[in-house]
C-alpha cells in the first residue's frame, strides 16, 4: 500500500481514489452498458423513424405514379407489369389491425427493400391475379408492419389497392412454418409447378417476435374486386 502511494505521488494527482486499473475497468463496463442501451434505442425507435420516412416517400411515389397515365403493358414481358425493385407497389390495408390506415408495399423482399415497408415477392402474383400474391414484412423493428399478424382471424379482410382497383381478400388460415418452407409461396401453395385456379394472398413474417426460428404465414382468398371509381370497399370499415 505504501508503495502505491509513493508511486502516486510522482504522477499528477488523480481526481478519484482507488487503483487506476479498477477505475478504467469500471468506466469501460459503464460505457459498454450505455452502448447496449443505445443499440436498443436504435432498434426500437431509430429503425421506426427510418421506415416512417421511407413510407412517406413511397406514398408520394404511388400518388405520382398513379396520377400519370398508365404505361402500355408488354404482354410478352410479364415482369414489366411489376414496378422496379425498391419502388412502391400497392397499398395494403389490414382493417382488424390498423383500421383504414394503409401500409405502402414496396416491390422486392431484399433487406433494404423491407426497411421501406412490406415487400411484394417479385414474380409472385399481382393483386387480383390467378396465383399467389406474396407479401413479406417486419414483425419487429423498421415500423414492424406485421407485428400483430397473429391477431388476424379467418374471415378478416386483407385489402389491396392498386392504380385502378380495390381487391378484398378474406383470411382463410394461419400457419407457423420453418424458414425454408418456400412451398407456401408457390402459385398453388405446396404444389410446385401446378397451374393456379384460385386467387390467393400470402403474408409472411418472422415468428416468434425478435426471432428467426420460424415464419408466421397468413393466407387469404380473393372475395371481391371493385374499380376505384366505385369508391372504397366496405371491408375497410371493419375493425
Amino acid at each position: 500500500m505504501t508503495t502505491t502511494s509513493r508511486t502516486r505521488a510522482a504522477v499528477p494527482p488523480s481526481p478519484r481514489r482507488g487503483p487506476a486499473g479498477l477505475q478504467v475497468l469500471g468506466e469501460v463496463l459503464l460505457t459498454l452498458g450505455v452502448l447496449l442501451l443505445l443499440f436498443c434505442v436504435y432498434e426500437v425507435y431509430g429503425t421506426n423513424l427510418v421506415t416512417a420516412r421511407e413510407q412517406r416517400e413511397l406514398a408520394q411515389d404511388l400518388t405520382e405514379t398513379w396520377a400519370a397515365p398508365a404505361a402500355p403493358t408488354a404482354p410478352d414481358r410479364p415482369q414489366a407489369r411489376e414496378p422496379p425493385l425498391g419502388r412502391a407497389f400497392a397499398r395494403l390495408y389490414l382493417p382488424r389491425l390498423d383500421g383504414s390506415d394503409p401500409l405502402v408495399v414496396v416491390q422486392g423482399v431484399s433487406v433494404p427493400d423491407l426497411k421501406k415497408g412490406p415487400g411484394h415477392l417479385p414474380g409472385s402474383a399481382l393483386p387480383g391475379e390467378l396465383g399467389n400474391l406474396v407479401v413479406s414484412g417486419h414483425r419487429t423493428t423498421y415500423g414492424a408492419p406485421f407485428s400483430d399478424l397473429d391477431r388476424l382471424r379467418d374471415g378478416d379482410a386483407i385489402v389491396v389497392e392498386t392504380r385502378d382497383s380495390w381487391f378484398t381478400y378474406r383470411v382463410t388460415g394461419t400457419q407457423i412454418v420453418l424458414p425454408s418452407a418456400i412451398e407456401v409461396t408457390y402459385p398453388v401453395p405446396g404444389r410446385q409447378g401446378a397451374a393456379p385456379t384460385s386467387r390467393l394472398v400470402t403474408l409472411t413474417t418472422c415468428n416468434p417476435k425478435f426471432s428467426a426460428r420460424e415464419r408466421l404465414i397468413v393466407r387469404g382468398q380473393l372475395e371481391a374486386r371493385r374499380p376505384t371509381s366505385d369508391g372504397r370497399p366496405p371491408a375497410l370499415a371493419e375493425a
Binding site: L35, Y42, E43, T47, L114, G119, H138, T140, S180, T205
Partner: peptide, 27 residues
Amino acid sequence: VLLLLFTVVFPYVETLLPFNDVTVDEG
C-alpha cells in the same frame, strides 16, 4: 461518436441479428 454509432455501427451490428429474416427462402 453518436452519429457514427447510429449511422454505421448499429446498422452493421443489426445485420448479425435475426430481426431482418421475414421471408421464406432456400437459405
